[in-house]
């Protein structure tokens, strides 16, 4: 079996195993998995409105997945996408409410603010990694909590002690009448186009630029890259900054598209952590991220229908997602099993 085939088979097998474990859990706890998964299916594809909302949910997952994948390709584990997303969300919403400008300036400005905020939040762990060899996983986890508390405090200041900002001016909104008419007034917005463009941007950076080549080289082998004359430290920082910018953009999708405001949070959105799942499932490639985001975004939105239609707690889908991550991470053993199965077939012949 070729490497390429196993690379695609591992995520597929993981998804199937994840759904299987979900079914078993439903069965054991006294629910009918068929009814459960039918409700999930209807929650994703039920009618035009749900399809619109599903696509809306996929949008931030695309960008969060890109953020994680981009860092992974440079040999970095950005577990701080969540925090970068939160500061991006706040920055975009702040620009959205603070000033009123013509749309052609306001919307790009708000989006840019989100990207810059996310990039800044990625810059810190990047710098610490480059200068002090501090492991980025720990720093980004800490940065997540700092982001959560700092944005909550800022929201309080901006809203005079309240726990959410005003609605953003329409000049900063990604709202799309065209999409709304198409999908029975779901909240699907133009952000999905931006997210898809960014998938292209990531591909372009990684495959068609010197920067991308260097980033990948650093990801493969830092010493070899250094020896070949690349500036490893610069590349580490750049990788975290770009990754953070993608994550910040994911936040702007929520700020300018879905919610059009930012409210203080008691905990994390979870989108950033699910971004890890998206990237892993997509094998850290731009195209793979589209598949990963589609799968997890759909599961996440479809789950909302499960309590109503089947009376099953929606957490079952979170369990499925966790199990999928677990299996993808344990790819080594799945590869081994696939290989053994393939060898057996050969012997039988």
């Amino acid at each position: 079996m070729s490497n390429r085939v196993t690379n695609i088979l591992v995520p597929l097998v993981s998804v199937i195993l994840g759904l299987l474990v979900g079914a078993i859990i439903m069965l054991v706890s006294g629910y009918n998995p068929l009814i459960g998964y039918t409700a999930l299916w209807n929650g994703i594809f039920g009618d035009l409105y749900t399809i619109g909302e599903t696509l809306r949910q996929i949008t931030p997952y695309l960008l969060a997945g890109l953020a994680v994948a981009f860092a992974f390709r440079s040999g970095l584990f950005n577990i701080g996408v969540e925090g970068q997303l939160i500061v991006g969300w706040f920055a975009a919403a702040y620009v959205g409410v603070a000033v009123e400008l013509p749309k052609i300036i306001h919307l790009p400005l708000a989006i840019l603010a989100a990207a810059v905020a996310g990039a800044l939040w990625g810059f810190v762990p990047g710098l610490l990694k480059a200068k002090f060899r501090v492991h980025e996983v720990i720093v980004t986890i800490m940065m997540n909590y700092i982001a959560l508390h700092v944005t909550n405090a800022l929201i309080k200041t901006v809203s005079d002690g309240g726990d959410r900002t005003e609605r953003i001016f329409t000049s900063a909104s990604l709202r799309s009448e065209f999409f709304q008419n198409l999908t029975e007034f779901s909240r699907l917005h133009y952000g999905i186009l931006l997210a898809l463009i960014m998938v292209g941007v990531m591909w372009l950076i990684l495959e068609k630029t010197t920067l991308g080549y260097e980033l990948k080289a650093v990801g493969f082998n830092q010493n070899a890259s250094e020896y070949a004359g690349m500036n490893v430290n610069k590349n580490i920082i750049l990788a975290m900054v770009i990754s953070g910018a993608f994550a910040g953009l994911a936040g702007s999708m929520e700020a300018l598209g879905t919610f059009e405001y930012v409210s203080s949070k008691g905990g994390f959105t979870g989108i950033g952590f699910d971004g890890i799942a998206v990237a892993l499932l997509g094998m850290n490639t731009p195209l793979g991220v589209i598949f990963g985001a589609t799968l997890f975004g759909s599961l996440k939105y479809g789950a909302l229908n499960m309590p109503n239609e089947a009376g099953i707690p929606l957490e079952i889908v979170e369990i499925v997602i966790a199990v999928i991550i677990f299996f993808v991470a344990s790819g080594y053993i799945i590869r081994l099993l696939l290989l053994r199965a393939a060898n057996k077939k050969k012997e039988a012949k």
Partner: peptide, 21 residues
Amino acid sequence: RADQVVSGVAINLLAIALSLY
């Protein structure tokens, strides 16, 4: 031989989902 951080993330997601379920 899974990535230990990824496996840890999966444990976190699984724990909260399973207990809330």
